[in-house]
């Protein structure tokens, strides 16, 4: 973790610098009347100092412990699936997007059979439409099916 901490520390330090610059732009005000950027500037400064401390500690302790990442491909696939769901939700509509999400996760991430993944996806999409759309009136988008 220590090696990664160096890079994380650097990223946070850069981020805190950006926050401080933006906060100055919002206006720091005075001590009597703090401006819109006062608190975020202080928080940015604190984050900056802490990031430098993290970098210092990471360098002074040297490299050790290498974190192993299990099945990164599956994690990426799941993330891409929910991202696609988010971007396509309003166009496809909830029922179709939910069906595709569940089917994709079961078929391609979990590598279940066609029949099983299609069946579960159909049941889940239908049931969640009944529960959330019709019963709880969550006003989920109808998308192309609504048109």
């Amino acid at each position: 973790m220590v090696k990664a901490d160096r890079w994380i520390g650097i990223l946070f330090a850069l981020f805190s610098f950006y926050v401080c610059v933006e906060s100055v732009r919002f206006g720091l005000g005075t001590y009597q009347q703090p401006g819109a950027g006062f608190v975020s500037f202080c928080a940015g400064m604190i984050l900056g100092v802490l990031s430098l401390a993290l970098i210092f500690l990471a360098f002074s302790r040297g490299t050790k412990i290498r974190k192993t990442w299990h099945n990164p491909g599956r994690v990426v696939m799941v993330f891409l699936a929910i991202l696609a769901f988010t971007l396509l939700l309003e166009w496809l509509g909830f029922i179709l997007a939910a069906f595709l999400l569940i089917w994709f996760l079961l078929k391609f991430v979990e590598q279940r059979g066609w029949g099983f993944s299609l069946g579960v996806a159909l049941v889940v999409a239908g049931a969640s439409h009944v529960v959330f759309d019709l019963w709880l009136r969550a006003q989920l988008p109808a998308g192309i099916l609504g048109n």
């Binding site: 799941v78 699936a81 929910i82 769901f85 988010t86 939700l89 909830f94 939910a98 999400l101 569940i102 996760l105 079961l106 979990e110 279940r112 579960v120 889940v124 969640s128 959330f132 969550a138 989920l140």
Partner: peptide, 13 residues
Amino acid sequence: AILYPLILLFCLI
């Protein structure tokens, strides 16, 4: 494997 797609879907909804 069956539970997490449901958890994700509920989070998204």
